[in-house]
Simulated scan of single mutants.
Amino acid sequence: MLTVKEVAEKLSIAPSTIRYYDDQGLLPFIQRDKNSYRLFKEDELFWLELIECMRSTGMPIKTLRHVAHLHMQGKETLAERKRIFKEHREKLHKQKQDIDVALGKLEVKMKLLDSL
């Protein structure tokens, strides 16, 4: 079992961020010791990495909380979890296309400015 400090060091996430995620209901599976300190199993670190990744791409806390609770309900919620992640993936693909278009226009503009 790993403490918040150990997990924070291992994943390069601030301990306060890990506590925030727990306070927001994103870590309903973590255990606590007799002093109420949060304890993580090694295989639970993947979920923290996924939270960080999804947050960096704009997935709302509310959606991640919903996914966490679906996960706790078991395999019967697998289709719903897949649907949520598929929708987010599609949103990210659209954003990527928009960014690619914007970068192309910016490159053209930079070339024009360089020629002045």
Score class of each variant (00 low, 15 high):
1 M>S: 12
2 L>M: 12
4 V>I: 08
4 V>H: 00
4 V>F: 03
5 K>T: 03
5 K>Q: 13
5 K>H: 08
6 E>W: 00
7 V>M: 03
10 K>D: 06
11 L>A: 08
12 S>L: 11
13 I>E: 01
14 A>P: 04
14 A>F: 05
16 S>C: 09
16 S>R: 14
18 I>V: 05
18 I>E: 02
19 R>W: 00
20 Y>C: 10
24 Q>W: 03
24 Q>T: 00
25 G>Y: 02
25 G>R: 04
26 L>Q: 05
26 L>C: 05
28 P>R: 11
28 P>L: 11
28 P>N: 12
29 F>G: 05
30 I>N: 04
32 R>S: 07
33 D>H: 08
35 N>T: 12
35 N>M: 10
35 N>P: 04
35 N>C: 13
35 N>S: 13
36 S>W: 06
38 R>W: 02
38 R>P: 00
39 L>T: 02
39 L>Y: 03
40 F>I: 05
40 F>P: 03
40 F>Q: 03
41 K>F: 10
42 E>C: 05
43 D>H: 13
43 D>K: 14
43 D>V: 10
45 L>R: 07
50 L>S: 12
50 L>H: 04
50 L>V: 08
52 E>M: 10
52 E>Y: 11
53 C>A: 11
54 M>R: 11
54 M>G: 02
55 R>D: 03
55 R>C: 07
56 S>V: 10
57 T>I: 05
58 G>W: 01
59 M>R: 02
60 P>M: 09
61 I>A: 02
61 I>Q: 00
62 K>T: 11
62 K>Y: 02
64 L>F: 02
64 L>M: 15
64 L>R: 04
65 R>A: 03
66 H>N: 09
67 V>R: 00
67 V>A: 01
68 A>V: 00
68 A>K: 10
69 H>D: 04
69 H>A: 01
69 H>L: 10
69 H>E: 10
70 L>M: 12
71 H>A: 09
73 Q>I: 06
73 Q>S: 10
73 Q>D: 08
74 G>F: 00
75 K>D: 13
75 K>G: 08
77 T>S: 05
79 A>L: 13
80 E>D: 10
80 E>I: 04
81 R>H: 03
81 R>D: 04
81 R>A: 00
81 R>K: 12
83 R>P: 02
83 R>C: 08
84 I>R: 07
84 I>N: 08
90 E>Q: 09
92 L>P: 06
94 K>Q: 15
95 Q>Y: 12
97 Q>F: 10
98 D>V: 05
98 D>E: 15
98 D>W: 07
99 I>G: 00
99 I>A: 11
100 D>H: 09
100 D>C: 06
100 D>T: 07
101 V>E: 12
101 V>L: 15
101 V>T: 13
102 A>P: 06
103 L>T: 10
104 G>T: 14
104 G>M: 11
107 E>N: 13
107 E>V: 15
108 V>Q: 13
109 K>D: 01
109 K>A: 11
109 K>H: 10
110 M>P: 00
110 M>L: 14
113 L>C: 06
113 L>W: 07
114 D>E: 15
114 D>R: 14
114 D>Q: 14
116 L>H: 11
